[in-house]
Design a protein around this nucleic acid. Structure first.
Lengths: 348, 348
DNA sequence: TGTTAGCACTCAACTCGTTAGAGTGCTAAC
DNA sequence: GTTAGCACTCTAACGAGTTGAGTGCTAACA
């Protein structure tokens, strides 16, 4: 069967209406509230076709129709294309900048928490923001200093000004001058290298050079390795989990609990992040509908994600999680907006 | 009316039974399953008395009885006293150490997350752990160093080895020697002071001493102030929020959503933390039942908290949040256990 | 050939009355 | 003081009946 103009109009009308009301929508409603001027009977015939084609379905025989995943997919694709066309047409004509929603904050961590919250408040859905992440960051600067007898502070600054620090317990004492020498030695050898590039050869050379401080150097390198590890697991901030309860179709006990559990267990969100980082090569916004999401517990939801990028190339993901019956247009708009703001914020 | 031995036995039986089944318990059940050898009619009379005294209540006329907040209170106080007596009797006789449940971890932050999780898994309730917090921490060590042109890294180590760091944008360049001098100057002036003790007099003296680097010193002091601020809001880790759904009396939509919201908005838990830090002067475990909790959204729950203490005197709180119908004995036992482990962990 | 009116049919949701069962309070007897 | 017995109350579960929204199909219409 073919999809003609009229069918598209009816499908859109069904989806729009369902998004608004959340109730299955019947043929009479469509006949009354569209400019098609067709009777309910004709609409019924068309709807039977649309159902056969898999775009809509009936919860039960004598109910109206609701969109299927495929129906939403069609709607979203259509909508995105139209939006793109609209954008192309007026180019940068007015590109109305919405006022900056994000408070100014100093620390990246706080900024991202803020983004998660702002998104949650604005969209009324659950949100997640993954911190920027980059493989193979290089070491920019290392500094060790003795803060008291037996305790040495090691500070490691990675590319992109990511700071890591540890306190190392050290049995032997170290005087200020030696400390200075060690610092110079460490920096001249390790600075500029990626964490992965520190191999055995480098380690043994450093240890040898350090003489009596060989053990200490080992400890420091261990600390660097630990920094690498803690850099590896992606930090994720979530917000608005309780928004889930606003949507009856998600708020029955088992579904809600699974969803909230996923939001709590941030490791599980990694799927979502990596998935959209992979596919999102064109930097666009991705919409996952129902079964399309890579996370099991979100099969009854839709997920909209976008990636943002730092100057240094590190990429992060942000996204919202809501019911399939979601105001896609508004969400995509909002996410696009926040994404822009975030890119700007990192560019100062 | 007086509370005699028999009434106490019946009250305990009602509560025990209700904790197990979650159903209102009737007179016949009590008559069958206690060693009192009384008929249901007698039990009924006693239960009528207990109801009049406010320890139990009926959801509706023809149902069994459930414990009231006062009933739980009586039960818990009684239980705690008995436990204490038992403990006193056998002194340290066997003091069976349960195996260490906590994985060894390096960073305090991870340790506390771990505690929250372990508690949640072990008790099947929602849990929270507040990071140790101490007012008036003194500064132990400050170090600034230039990591690249125009960017200066400031590291501040507070008492208890709490490390803070910031990157300061600095327009004027600074050579290594001057940097050293500034460090010495800063440390000799500020080290040993509490954050609050840095007053205008000290600031202006430092600024004057620093000469051309006066502005930089100001920036560094600002960074210290920021560190103080970020130290001020208590870090709280939560876990097991979804456990709430396991208890039907809490899992209706509005209640669950409020509770989860509170667990998400960690600031609201501050009440709970400060409250138990205040009252918990004897270092014991506190049980809040229903209306007793200082947090609005937990009026339908019970909360059990304990404080732990670091060597340096900083105190933190841990607690579990569950239904009033909670296995108090097991929970108190578990919390006591974790508390001991935590105290030990910080003592190495 | 596409569109429409009409009609029989289906199904969920609601209402209402009935019943069963658990539990109580009260009274009178032990 | 304790107990058996009985009338009473209230919820939960069940089932029948009703309503209303919506459908599919057919036949007539433009």
């Amino acid at each position: 069967m073919e999809m003609d103009e009229r069918k598209i109009k009816i499908l859109k009308a069904v989806i729009r209406n369902y998004l608004e009301t959340g109730e299955p929508v019947g043929s009479r409603t469509i006949s009354k509230y569209t400019d098609l001027n067709l009777s309910s009977a004709t609409i019924r015939n068309e709807m039977a076709d649309l159902e056969e084609m898999g775009y809509i379905l009936q919860p039960h025989t004598s109910a109206g129709r609701i969109p299927s995943d495929a129906g939403y997919r069609f709607y979203v694709d259509n909508m995105m294309r139209e939006q793109q066309e609209k954008l192309d047409k007026r180019e940068n004509e007015l590109n109305k900048k919405e006022e900056l929603l994000l408070e100014k904050v100093d620390r990246v961590e706080d900024l991202l928490k803020n983004v998660a919250k702002t998104l949650a408040v604005n969209t009324n859905y659950a949100t997640m923001v993954a911190a920027p992440h980059k493989n193979g960051r290089t070491i920019k600067f290392i500094q060790i200093s003795q803060i008291e007898k037996g305790k040495i502070l090691a500070v490691i600054v990675l590319e992109g000004n990511v700071i890591k620090n540890t306190i190392i317990e050290n049995l032997t004492d170290i005087d200020t001058e030696d400390c200075l020498k060690l610092n110079i030695m460490l920096n001249s050898t390790v600075a500029g290298l990626a964490l992965e590039e520190i191999n055995l050869a480098i380690i043994s050379r450093l240890t040898a050079q350090a003489g009596e401080y060989g053990m200490l150097i080992r400890d420091i390198l261990d600390a660097i390795a630990a920094a690498a590890a803690s850099e590896d697991d992606i930090q994720i901030y979530t917000s608005g989990a309780t928004n889930i309860f606003k949507y009856p179709e998600l708020s029955d006990n088992t579904k809600a609990s699974k969803l909230i559990y996923t939001l709590e267990e941030k490791k599980m969100l990694a799927n979502l992040v990596t998935d959209s980082l992979d596919k999102d090569s064109d930097g666009d916004i991705k919409v996952y509908i129902g079964e399309e999401t890579p996370v099991e517990s979100m099969k009854d939801c839709s997920v909209v994600t976008a990636t943002y990028e730092l100057e240094d190339g590190a990429k992060g993901t942000l996204g919202i999680i809501g019911p399939k019956r979601m105001d896609y247009e508004k969400v995509v708009e909002t996410i696009k907006n926040i994404k822009t703001q975030l890119n700007d914020a990192f560019k100062h």
